[in-house]
Design a protein around this nucleic acid. Structure first.
Lengths: 212, 212, 212, 212
DNA sequence: GATGAATGAGTCTTCATTCAT
DNA sequence: CATGAATGAAGACTCATTCAT
């Protein structure tokens, strides 16, 4: 199995490096939101964790919401970078799909440590803070569809064999991967390990005999 | 397509019928938690929505947590009832699988109106209130696996064709359905409509030529 | 030592006998106020302890305050009865004084079981409910003074020996008895046992040699 | 009569001086608890009296209980200081006893303004907040006993004359002083004035003729 | 007479945010 | 830049009392 993305290029550490005060604050924000969720984390907690006075937080960010927004922004930056890397790899379509899903969902698991509060965070982002956390997922779906279409055109996948469109296949892949990400007790490692099998099961009927 | 479960038997209305005060309170609880989540819904809000004084809530329930617990209990009762009905239908394995998934996830979508707060609620249930909301999902997985195994023994599915175990297939079905349930803007209707296609795509390689 | 008062004449049981509903309620009131104090005892608690519905309490009493007033009234009735009995005994002045103090303070200890909440109760009685709980104590002081004066006239006590008035001696006796009553962990029995020694120590300088 | 303790050394003012916010809060706490008792005083009341926002109270103290504890702590500090001063005076045993009692009970009357709520406060301290308010009183009893024993050894008191032990005499002195402190309407001044007479009456039988 | 159900006013406590220094 | 101190608004929960049955 190829290494899906070059971890040295973009790591959590590189995005949360504790250089500036702002970095410390965002690192504290991520850590606490992961552990306790948005609501249960008080601004006091963040200040204590970041080792600064509460008022200092307000020097750098307009409030709790902006700290959250910035934390998400850094996450999406990392995710985006890894996605681009995954698309650039030259390998079989199956491997590329695995790499892309891993870049998106694997990064999510890594950053958010598969926290039980992930969807409280998502819910807050969408409904109270207006961060379009769903947009990257849509982009992901489009990328995946494009990848499958290209493979079909190259003859690497035969969608006609299962009577489904590229959109349908991308959709089901995405659904299954999402489900796997949310399986209880999933870690980045377990997700990483299970992914190829899931992709293979879904694609199995579409791979021409001469390739399989 | 068969009707997955007989809606006249067990509907949300039948479980939240506004007969007693307790029913009114639980109905208000459900409605507000769906709209605003657990934390953002205050006990005052619930009292206002239910049309009773705050103290009355405490006459019927020991606190906010117990209102939540009772709301979940009623949901699980409904879900359980529909699952049993789905398992009892006599039809093709594909239809039965669709019916079972619909009984579990369709009911969830219906009850919680696919709220963006679903996982805040799940998180609160699991971590702060100790309601085992995951247990029914495990039961669901076992039922699904059993169904697939039975179909294989009857020759209705050929797992050997894709080299997967019944557990694997059940797992992927569950992952995909979970993903579909969480798709943005999914409604009970859209989920209901998409489900057969998803199930078919995953099972397509395992259905013997003489049946398909 | 003579028996200070005839217990068969007036006992707590005879005043709180659980005949009527009102009796049950007052018995519950006494028991709970002794155990938890006035504020910490809720009307719910009283209803539960008395085995009646909360609304029933309000049939018999206008509110929590009146239950308290009635409870005090019954206590004072008992105390009064025992005082009269103590005064009627024919014995030495020292014994009579002991008997009188015991009738007042011993009854208090018995009724209120030397509760730590005694003065919260007194404070509530005086300041919020306007029950003159101090009045009986003043009457007691007058009785004691009268007793001492009579003894002096009879030559049984010689106040001139210590240069104090009957009022002064009564006062100090009363102070010391009050202190003994409030000693930590005092029970009715321990108070009863310590009382003669205390009285003797205070009177010792006034007893004529021919009597002592 | 000697001045029992040098008031300029340790006064209520010096302990509650309204320098810091915490001081203001404790001063308000003392004043309100004295006037209304613990339960009847709400945190809102304290905030209003102290002239700060309610949240400010929680900045300085963890809650109502801690405000109470701190108020008691300051009282005990003052009491302790005055006791030490009383013991150091060089004068007759009678005067020293009066001075010591005044340091303990006089300070209590002064600080708590002989409030009717004194024992609700004591009860709350002992039973709900675990402040050992009885311990200083025990220390006081030991000091008093020691003082009497020393006087006996010096021949200043003759306990044999009344057939009592030093403990007994200390006990009765303490009881009587406690009673005087709790006399209705006692003020610090009236207590101060009555104390020497009370002590004298109790000690009168033990003072050798050559001294008296 | 007795009660189950209901409530308005009040309790203590927390939190995101601001401001003078 | 950084902070200690302060706060208004809101949160969950309790209680003595009332009323229709």
């Amino acid at each position: 199995m190829v290494l899906c993305y070059d971890r040295s290029m973009a790591t959590i550490a590189s995005v949360t490096a504790s250089g500036s005060k702002a970095d410390q604050i965002i690192a504290a924000t991520r850590s606490l939101f992961v552990r306790y969720g948005y609501r249960r984390t008080s601004v006091d907690d963040i200040a204590r964790e970041a080792g600064v006075a509460k008022a200092t937080l307000y020097l750098h960010f307009s409030g709790k919401e902006e700290m959250f927004r910035e934390m998400i922004r850094r996450f999406q930056l990392l995710q985006e970078e890894r996605c681009a890397a995954a698309e650039a790899i030259e390998t079989s379509v199956e491997n590329k799909i695995v790499a892309l899903i891993d870049a998106v969902y694997g990064t999510t698991i890594e950053w958010f440590e598969n926290t039980a509060h992930i969807e409280e965070l998502k819910s807050v982002a969408l409904h109270e803070i207006s961060v379009p956390v769903d947009e990257p997922v849509q982009a992901f779906r489009r990328r995946l569809t494009r990848m499958i279409k290209a493979a079909e055109e190259r003859g690497e996948l035969r969608l006609s064999a299962v009577g489904s469109s590229a959109q349908d296949v991308a959709q089901v892949l995405l659904f299954a991967a999402y489900g796997a990400k949310h399986a209880a007790h999933a870690t980045h490692a377990s997700f990483h390990a299970a992914l190829p099998g899931i992709v293979r099961l879904i694609l199995v009927g579409m791979i021409p005999a001469d390739i399989a």
